[in-house]
Design a protein around this nucleic acid. Structure first.
Lengths: 149, 149
DNA sequence: AAAGTTGTATAAGCCAGTGATATAAAAACG
DNA sequence: CGTTTTTATATCACTGGCTTATACAACTTT
C-alpha cells in the first residue's frame, strides 16, 4: 500500500463536477448582508436551536476568537442573542432572533430564486436526475458532519 | 402575473439540498494557500486561457481594484503572470504559470481526496445517483455561465 | 483550598475586499 | 487633426473577518 490512497476515476469525475458546481453555488449566493460563516452559523442556530459558543466554532471551521467576534457582530446587528447558562457561569448560549430567521430566509429565497430561474431552463430529464441525487447529497453531508463533528 | 415569480416545491427542495451541499463543499475545501476568488480565477485561466484583467473581475464577482490586487498577489507568488496586449497599450493580459497549474492541481487533489473518503462510505445506489446527476449539474453550470458571462 | 481545566474575551496583526480617485491609452467627434 | 470622452488599470484609505497569543473567570479535581 502506497502512502497515497487510490482515487477512482469515478471519484475524480465527481470531484471535478463538484468543483464546477461549487462555483456555481458561490455565484448564486448573494454577496450581501451575511458572510459565509455568519450565514452558516445562523442556519445552524435555526436548524438545531441555541448552542454554546464553544460548540459553534469547531463545526464552522473557525477559531474560537473568530466565533466570539462573529457572535458579537451578529448580536450588534440583532440577528443573534447571547444568553447565559444558569448551570454554568462560564458558558455563553447563542440563539437566533426573529430578525436572524428573516435574514436567513431572505438569503435562502434569493438563492432559490436564482436557482429556480436556471432550473426551468434545464431539460426535464436533467431536472429529474438532480432531484434523484438530492438524498445522496444529503447523506454525504451527514457523513461529513459525523466525521468532523 | 405577480411581481414575484412562483417557485415550485421541487425547486425549494433542490435549493435547500444545495444549500446544505454548498456548506459540505466549503468544508471539504482546504483553507490553505488560495482564497476562493484566487482559486476560481486560476481555474478560469487554466480552463480558458489568458484573459485581460477587465474580463476577469466581473465573472468572479469582485470589483476591478480587487482583481488588480489579486493578480498582483498571484504574480508575487508566481502563480500568474502579467503580459501586455500589443494592440492595446492599456490592457493587461493575465495568464497562469506552471506553478499556478500545480497549485490548482494540489487544491483539486486535496478536495478530491477528502471527497473520495466520504464517497466510499456511501451506499452504491447513492454513489450512482450522484454520478447520474453530474451531467445535469454540469449543464446547470453552463447555463449560469451563459446568463452572466 | 490549591491546582488544573474549560469557556469566553481581548489584543495585535494579516489578508482580501470595498469605494473614490488618479492616470494613461484608445476612441469619438467637431 | 486636436480636444473631449471613454476605457483599462492602478493606487489609496478603509473595513471585515480571520489568525495566534494571551488574559481571566468559572467550574472541576484532588
Amino acid at each position: 500500500m502506497r502512502h497515497t490512497t487510490t482515487i477512482s476515476a469515478e471519484d475524480q469525475a465527481i470531484a471535478t463536477g463538484f468543483e464546477r458546481f461549487y462555483e456555481l453555488l458561490r455565484r448564486l449566493t448573494p454577496r450581501s448582508e451575511l458572510s459565509l460563516t455568519a450565514a452558516s452559523t445562523l442556519r445552524r442556530l435555526e436548524r438545531s436551536g441555541p448552542h454554546r459558543l464553544c460548540e459553534l466554532h469547531a463545526p464552522e471551521g473557525v477559531s474560537q476568537p473568530a466565533m466570539t467576534q462573529l457572535v458579537t457582530r451578529l448580536e450588534r446587528e440583532g440577528l443573534a442573542r447571547r444568553g447565559s447558562d444558569p448551570a454554568d457561569g462560564r458558558a455563553v448560549v447563542v440563539s437566533i432572533t426573529e430578525a436572524g430567521r428573516e435574514a436567513v430566509a431572505r438569503r435562502r429565497e434569493g438563492r432559490t430564486r436564482a436557482l429556480s430561474a436556471l432550473l426551468e431552463q434545464l431539460p426535464a430529464a436533467d431536472h429529474a436526475a438532480i432531484m434523484a441525487a438530492l438524498p445522496a447529497l444529503e447523506k454525504l453531508g451527514d457523513l461529513l458532519a459525523e466525521n468532523t463533528n
